[in-house]
């Protein structure tokens, strides 16, 4: 073909597998191009299909993909990954621009696997704590057994204010419980006009969290969200991700709330 084929996947080697829960693993994949938190790859196993997966970590020549086992493609990935490789194409989408958050107070609120696309932001400010005027991570999971990135939480605790909470505690769990929204009002913010809120998670959680941030006095223009929609192509063709005149795969998935709030399914 004369035009380069954006549908052609490339082979990427699995360097390491980090098991968080029975159904959620992080695959550390060889990749040396540019990548941003919030961008995604179409991950595939030929003959089984493709699945869009967010970048959950970025290093010199690897990217992390944290995959939840839910169906056809992801089952096959979990069963057949041993010592192997996966096909990727991407990265797609705009991703989060760290530049927008430098030298500001930041509250990052994530629900469940929603932590994946923003994990790179926590990693960055944990490694460069002088570049923020205060960073609070509020992460919520269903139960203690669903907590992802446990080792990373230990690392983040050293430099960031971390609130890890579960909806339903189980016997023997001694951490925080309750919804992420319950913690927002008590987080100290010095300059509310300039403070940044970043929210990613299931639709209901995002809505309630944003309401809480706005109530606290956050400016709409300082709130950033990432939208998950069904995606088959990642390149503006298949139509599945479209909302209004916006293609989430091309124009998002990261949106400033001033635009994001108008996206009506």
């Amino acid at each position: 073909m004369t035009t380069t084929n954006p549908y052609t996947p490339f082979l990427s080697e699995i360097k390491e597998v980090i098991k968080h829960t029975d159904i959620e693993y992080t695959f550390r994949m060889t990749f040396s191009g540019d990548a941003k938190p919030g961008q995604f790859f179409e991950v595939s196993l030929p003959k089984f299909g493709e699945a869009p997966i967010s970048i959950s970590g970025i290093a010199e020549d690897t990217v992390d993909l944290t995959i939840r086992r839910v169906g056809k493609v992801t089952d096959e990935i979990f069963e057949n990954y041993v010592g192997d490789s996966l096909f990727l194409r991407g990265p797609y989408g705009n991703g989060f621009s760290i530049d927008n958050y430098i030298d500001k107070e930041i509250i990052l609120i994530a629900g469940g696997t929603g932590l994946s696309p923003v994990k790179g932001i926590a990693d960055y400010f944990s490694a460069h704590p002088k570049e923020t005027k205060g960073f609070t991570l509020v992460a919520g999971f269903k139960s203690p057994n669903d907590v992802l990135f446990k080792a990373d939480f230990e690392k983040w605790k050293k430099n960031l204010n971390v609130i890890l909470t579960v909806d339903t505690p189980i016997d023997g769990y001694c951490g925080k419980s309750g919804m992420v929204t319950e913690y927002i009002s008590s987080i100290p913010v010095k300059n509310i006009d300039d403070a940044i809120g970043i929210v990613v998670g299931p639709p209901m959680m995002m809505k309630c969290t944003i309401d809480e941030l706005l109530k606290k006095g956050f400016k709409e223009a300082n709130i950033w969200i990432s939208q998950e929609r069904k995606m088959c192509c990642g390149i503006g063709k298949c139509g599945h991700c479209k909302i209004d005149d916006t293609y989430i795969c091309l124009d998002g998935p990261v949106f400033n709330y001033t635009k994001g709030k108008f996206l009506k399914d």
Partner: peptide, 27 residues
């Protein structure tokens, strides 16, 4: 209307071979 869905399949007589297709989709 231009939407499609991606679909992978393997040939039943030879599980090692297959193809990736796109098929028309409807909103």
């Amino acid at each position: 209307c231009t939407c499609f869905t991606m679909q992978d399949l393997f040939y039943s007589d030879n599980g090692k071979a297959g193809e990736r297709r796109r098929v028309w989709a409807s909103c």
